[in-house]
Design a protein around this nucleic acid. Structure first.
Length: 470
DNA sequence: TTAGGGTTAG
């Protein structure tokens, strides 16, 4: 038992793990709780939570650690629903959750971006208010669920803070559009006794890139090694590229790619491509797209970005060419999708999908809202319609029914006045929806928070926390 | 003082 639980931690590939697993059976040790938790954990670390669940389910023997192992297996492999389901099973089985279980539950709420659920988990945490790791998980949960004010309160009250607490808060502020506050916090961190690490600096550079702070970004990037002994890694370069590309310093971005000493990956070229779209550099865009498609010939996002760049430049033959290639290769763009939590239920809206039971009412309300917004000065921005990829008659509808607009209207209809409307979506928000939501918060006197895959937009009284730079 | 579970980026 002692041997296996030690060796399982050291196994270096899945096939070794499977061999150890059968050898455990051979020796009849599979019911030992130490061996079982180590096995569950090992499967989880190799990204196989279902295998971990099999190990868990096949024996009745278990203790709190075995439960915690299997819950964390799903929490860490981004299956928040299953983690929460197992947590409920654990409570029904008569086990009292403690710090480790609650940390996994918080991490599950974080990955699901469900603020109300996270608040419920927070209630269980009160009696452990001195636990550092648990507090860190709480910080992350509040930051990622759009409750950055709550995170700030907890952070201020934390007696002990380690590098994870500081890094979580710095990145959290930046993701929520509070870049300058994030940089101020980094200054306070330097005054404290905690040394920044690799991840802290990523948060700092992220803050700079999302606020267009080019000089600050360079300064932190160039001083990483000297001040903190941290060699800039691939991710730091990616952040710098993002900073330069967004700010329109495309030549500097290309210089950085050439000098960085890493092979640029698809995400880096994609960053550059997006900068080319924003700053209308067709030639560089073509080069970047070519590089991406060499690395990943099926990357739908790049085809669409490139085709929009061509469309904006009026190069309709090239637009048609891309559409043809996409058709031939069977490449489809991912449909936009938004989620909103109302009455403990998640409501999903997908572009072009009218399956929501209230969809007709929502469309009527949306139409009326658009008319009121137009009277208040809203002009739909047709630049964001994918002219090339949609049929002529769908053009206006495709913009009108972007999933976040449907979710916003649904929130206005169903959430009490004064309650913040929180939406999560799978793609980045388009400029037209951004304008629409800004104006809607002013007209309807509501606060709206939208989380996209990269960051948050806090809309209030006609403005957004991103300062229209995202 | 021979063994198992939790937090930060992309």
């Amino acid at each position: 038992m002692f041997t296996y639980s030690s060796v399982l931690r050291a196994c270096g590939c899945v096939s070794h793990l499977v061999q150890l697993h059968s050898s455990i059976y051979k020796h009849g040790l599979e019911s030992d709780v130490f061996v079982r938790s180590a096995l569950i954990d090992a499967y989880s670390k190799w990204g196989l939570p279902q295998e971990a669940l099999c190990v868990f389910d096949e024996m009745p023997t278990g203790d709190l650690v075995v439960w915690n192992s299997v819950i964390s297996a799903f929490a860490q492999n981004s299956n928040g629903h299953e983690a929460l389901h197992l947590f409920k099973r654990m409570k029904r089985a008569g086990f009292d959750p403690e710090q480790s279980s609650l940390t996994s539950v918080l991490s599950a709420c974080t990955s699901l971006a469900l603020l109300e659920l996270g608040r419920q988990a927070h209630v269980h945490v009160f009696k452990y208010h001195q636990d550092l790791i648990l507090n860190n998980a709480l910080l992350d949960m509040y930051c990622k669920c759009g409750g950055v004010e709550d995170a700030n309160t907890i952070f201020t009250r934390m007696a002990d803070k380690d590098v994870v607490s500081w890094s979580t808060m710095i990145a959290g502020l930046a993701q929520n559009g509070y870049s300058r506050e994030a940089l101020k916090l980094f200054d306070s961190m330097k005054d404290s006794s905690t040394q920044p690490n690799y991840i802290t600096l990523l948060g700092v550079l992220f803050a700079c890139s999302h606020a267009g702070l080019v000089e600050d970004g360079w300064c932190h990037f160039r001083s990483m090694k000297k001040l903190y002994g941290i060699e800039p890694g691939r991710e730091h370069y990616a952040c710098m590229l993002d900073l330069l590309a967004r700010a329109g310093k495309l030549n500097k971005a290309v210089e950085l790619i050439n000098e960085m000493g890493f092979e640029p990956d698809g995400a880096m070229w994609r960053t550059l491509l997006d900068g080319c779209r924003a700053h209308k550099n067709v030639d560089l865009a073509m080069h970047a797209a070519e590089q991406i498609l060499k690395l990943n010939p099926q990357d739908a996002g790049s085809y669409i970005l490139l085709s929009n760049i061509y469309a904006n430049a009026g190069r309709w033959d090239d637009v048609a060419g891309i559409r043809k290639v996409m058709n031939e290769k069977g490449i489809k763009k991912q449909p936009g999708c938004s989620w909103i939590e109302v009455g403990k239920q998640i409501h999903t809206f997908v572009l072009g999908d009218g399956s929501h039971p209230q969809i007709n009412e929502i469309k009527i309300q949306l139409e009326s809202l658009i008319q009121r917004l137009v009277r208040a000065g809203y002009v739909p921005d047709l630049n964001f319609v994918l002219k090339d990829l949609e049929g002529e008659e769908q053009r206006e509808d495709s913009l009108r029914y972007h999933s976040e607009k449907l979710a916003v209207v649904f929130g206005l209809m169903n959430l009490p006045k004064g309650q913040t409307i929180r939406i999560r979506k799978n793609l980045r928000i388009c400029g037209d929806c951004h304008l629409f939501v800004k104006l809607a918060t002013k007209l309807e006197k509501r606060t709206i928070v939208i989380r996209d895959p990269i960051r948050y937009h806090h809309f209030h009284d006609g403005a957004c926390s991103c300062g229209d730079y995202w």
